[in-house]
Structures are given as structure tokens and as C-alpha cells.
């Protein structure tokens, strides 16, 4: 208990509460335009998606192009539940999220199994194929509305619920990453053969990463469905998976705060550029390319390091001292 109430944790708790209260107060004062208000929930959902995918891509080091597939499985499971059940919201929604998460997690195992045999680009294409298969199945499943979509989903998602879920997601994944289990996952990323010879059960930890990531993607899907009130298979296409991947990569691999910020920016950016209409996508594409080129430009990186990274400088100085 003492450790849980450390200064750092109390400070984090305060930050979480303050962000929530400030946004809530601003909203109550009518500060947000209707558009901005409508963005709060999608931002939260995208943060959950990005943080969960970063577990696979950033920490396990495997490329997944099928995250939207997990999201859709969760979304359809949860929404079918609330559409067909007739319970009060405060029972129905948590149940839907739990079920959506669990079913998505089961799919996480299914797609995690090829991950045990395949590496890198081959796994990427399998996850892509998995996403497309799920989508075409939903497209042809009349029980869930087929390509016309699933209608009449109660619009339960609101700012508070999404905020709570996103805080839970961040805490769980951050804690996982900073535990012995997280270290095992990272060791597989850095060197699989060394991890095996350290006795790390690689199979278990690969599956674990996929399962946890899929679970939260499923929850994000449930929230998504209950935000729009309708689910269409076409939402969960390859481009959605890519969008989530872009958030993770732009946020800096293996950085959870980075994923959060990138998810925020990438959700807001298109809305800011709304006035530019057709140019929106073009600008997005250019930003994407330029960001990647800059990130891998030696000159730009050394510039960035000079400006930002005092820590790196200190490490360098220590090393230099060592050498003397």
C-alpha cells in the first residue's frame, strides 16, 4: 500500500483527475463547439486502440496490420449483446465491454498462433489477411446486418465512460510493460534467440501480448459501436488498421505517452483540416511521408537530440568520463 501511494503515483492520479475535471468543466461551460465535443469520444477510442497495438508493435516487436479486425470482433459482440438484451445501461454496457474484450482476446489467440511460426513481413501479411477475412464474414452475415450494417445500437458511450476505459487501458498496459512479464515481452523483441536461452517461454509471451492487445481493441470496438449507434463492416478495413499503426509509429515505437499524443493528433488533425476538404487526405499523406523522412534523417535527429535530450547528453558525459 505504501508503494502504491508513492509521491509519483499520487501525482499521476492528480493529473488524471485534473485532466478529466478540466475537460468536463470546459464542456459544461459550453466551451467546445459541437464538432469538438463529438471528437472527445473518438479521441479516447483511438488512444485505447493505439496503446493496445503498441504492445504488439512497440514492445513485442511484431508487425500487425489487422488491429481493426480485433476491434470489429469486439464491436459486433458487444453491440449484439446490448441490442438483444434489455437491461439497464450500467449493467449492459460493462457486460458488453467485457464480452467484446473476451471474444476479441480469443481471436487474439487465433491470430497469435501463426505469430509463433512466422516472422516479420510474413506475419504482417497474415494479420492483414485475418482483418480482411473478418470483414468479409461480417459483410455476409445477415444476423449482424451484413454490408448494410448493424442498426439500433443504444448510444451509451460518453466522455466519462471512454475516459475511464482509456485510463484503465493505459494503466494496465504500462504496468504490464514494467513488470517481469513486460520485460520478457521486450526481450523477445530485442533478441528472440537470447530470450529463449534465458529460459523465457517465448510462445506464452507472444500469445499474451496478442491477447491483451486484442482484448483492449475489442473494448474500443464496443465503445465505438455505442458511440455511433451503427456498425458497418467497411469501417474496419485495412485503412483503419493502418491508421492505428501510424499512431503507434509516429508516437515513437515502444512509447506509451507517444502513442497517446499521436492518437490525439491524428484524430484531431483531419477535423482541423476539414475546411480544406479534398486536400485533407493529400496533406495527411504528405505529413506522413515527411515525418518518416525527418525521423530517419541524421541531421534532423542530431538537431533534435541537441534540443531535447538532456538525459542522453548526461549519459554521453558519463561514458566519456569512464573512458578517461
Amino acid at each position: 500500500m505504501k508503494q502504491l501511494l508513492s509521491k509519483k503515483n499520487l501525482f499521476l492520479l492528480a493529473v488524471i483527475a485534473v485532466i478529466y475535471a478540466v475537460l468536463f468543466a470546459l464542456d459544461a461551460q459550453g466551451f467546445f463547439s459541437r464538432q469538438a465535443k463529438a471528437l472527445l469520444v473518438p479521441i479516447g477510442i483511438n488512444i485505447i486502440l493505439a496503446v493496445s497495438l503498441s504492445l504488439i508493435v512497440g514492445f513485442l516487436g511484431e508487425l500487425s496490420l489487422g488491429h481493426a479486425g480485433f476491434m470489429s470482433v469486439g464491436a459486433y459482440t458487444g453491440c449484439m449483446l446490448t441490442v438483444n438484451l434489455d437491461l439497464p445501461m450500467y449493467i449492459e454496457l460493462p457486460l458488453a465491454m467485457l464480452m467484446g474484450g473476451i471474444v476479441a482476446a480469443i481471436f487474439g489467440v487465433i491470430i497469435g498462433i501463426p505469430a509463433l511460426r512466422l516472422r516479420g513481413d510474413y506475419l504482417a501479411i497474415v494479420t492483414l489477411a485475418f482483418g480482411e477475412i473478418i470483414r468479409s464474414i461480417f459483410n455476409n452475415l445477415s444476423v449482424v446486418g451484413g454490408s448494410g450494417g448493424l442498426n439500433g445500437i443504444p448510444k451509451y458511450s460518453n466522455y466519462t465512460i471512454v475516459y475511464i476505459m482509456l485510463v484503465i487501458t493505459i494503466i494496465v498496459i504500462t504496468n504490464l510493460v514494467n513488470s517481469r512479464h513486460g520485460r520478457a515481452i521486450c526481450s523477445i523483441r530485442d533478441n528472440k534467440i537470447a530470450a529463449e536461452s534465458m529460459g523465457i517461454p517465448v510462445v506464452y509471451y507472444k500469445l499474451l501480448a496478442f491477447v491483451v492487445a486484442a482484448f483492449f481493441a475489442g473494448i474500443a470496438g464496443v465503445l465505438y459501436g455505442h458511440n455511433l449507434g451503427i456498425l458497418k463492416p467497411s469501417t474496419f478495413d485495412f485503412n483503419k488498421s493502418i491508421e492505428i499503426l501510424v499512431m503507434v509509429v509516429m508516437g515513437g515505437m515502444g512509447s506509451i505517452p507517444g502513442s497517446v499524443i499521436a492518437a490525439l493528433l491524428i484524430t484531431v488533425l483531419p477535423e482541423i483540416l476539414r475546411g480544406l476538404q479534398d486536400y485533407r487526405m493529400l496533406i495527411y499523406a504528405v505529413v506522413l511521408i515527411v515525418m518518416m523522412l525527418l525521423n530517419n534523417n541524421a541531421k534532423f535527429n542530431s538537431f533534435k537530440q541537441r534540443v531535447f535530450s538532456k538525459k542522453a547528453k548526461k549519459q554521453g558525459a558519463d561514458l566519456a568520463k569512464e573512458g578517461e
Binding site: N175, L176, C186, S187, D190, A195
Partner: peptide, 27 residues
């Protein structure tokens, strides 16, 4: 080595099996 992990964490991966707390306990 586990290149993107700290020196300390590299050794802690080696200790993985000897100090075991559960997944729930970690999360």
C-alpha cells in the same frame, strides 16, 4: 544482448524464473 533495454533489465530478464510474481500481481 537485449539492446533496447537497460543494463539492469537485461539481468532481470535472466532472473525471470527465479523471482516469480503473477501476471495479475504485475498488472
Amino acid at each position: 544482448l537485449f539492446t533496447k533495454m537497460s543494463v539492469l533489465d537485461n539481468v532481470k530478464v535472466g532472473l525471470h524464473r527465479h523471482v516469480k510474481y503473477s501476471l495479475a500481481s504485475g498488472i
